[in-house]
């Protein structure tokens, strides 16, 4: 009997002794989805780490819940909703586009528009400028002289 147990144990142990390593996740497809979603989510307790990268306890728990939801057939949007229902928009690293974040998302466009206007106005004025009138050419020479002396 003892021998049988031993043999049984060996039969199981042998392949694990030098085998192909098992993926950490039992369902790599779901895991890939979690990692992808997790990049855009905040690990709430670590401050500025993503849910995908964090090894914090709560992050592990949340990934476990996400896994459950996904295995139950929920799509990505529903999984995100599960989290925002509980933790609010704070959990999202990509803030949703809504009235209070209009300025955040449109800001870069506005900056570009302002910059573009400055560029255009400056160039228009420079283009019109008569080349002969160089109020600074005197100073330029002086400075050059100063540096070369």
């Amino acid at each position: 009997m003892k021998l049988a147990v031993l043999l049984f144990a060996f039969a199981f142990a042998a392949p694990t002794l030098a085998g192909e390593a098992a993926p950490n996740a039992d369902n790599p497809e779901v895991e890939a989805r979690i990692n992808k979603l997790g990049e855009d989510l905040r690990c709430l307790v670590c401050q500025n780490e993503s849910l995908a990268g964090s090894r914090a306890d709560l992050a592990e728990d949340l990934r476990r819940e996400m896994r459950k939801q996904m295995k139950a057939g929920k799509n990505d949007a529903e999984v995100i909703e599960y989290l925002t229902d509980r933790y609010g928009d704070f959990v999202l690293y990509r803030p949703p586009f809504k009235p209070v974040t209009y300025l955040l998302w449109l800001g870069p466009v506005i900056f570009l528009a302002i910059g573009g206007t400055i560029w255009y106005v400056t160039l228009k004025r420079r283009h019109k400028m008569q080349d002969q009138i160089q109020p600074d050419s005197e100073a330029l020479k002086k400075a050059a002289a100063l540096l070369e002396q």
């Binding site: 855009d40 905040r42 704070f90 803030p95 570009l112």
Partner: peptide, 18 residues
């Protein structure tokens, strides 16, 4: 107006085009 997080997805989305 509440708390939000602004993280890498936002910065990548706006920084790369600029």
């Amino acid at each position: 107006l509440g708390k939000i997080s602004v993280g890498p997805p936002y910065f990548n989305a706006v920084f790369i085009p600029l």
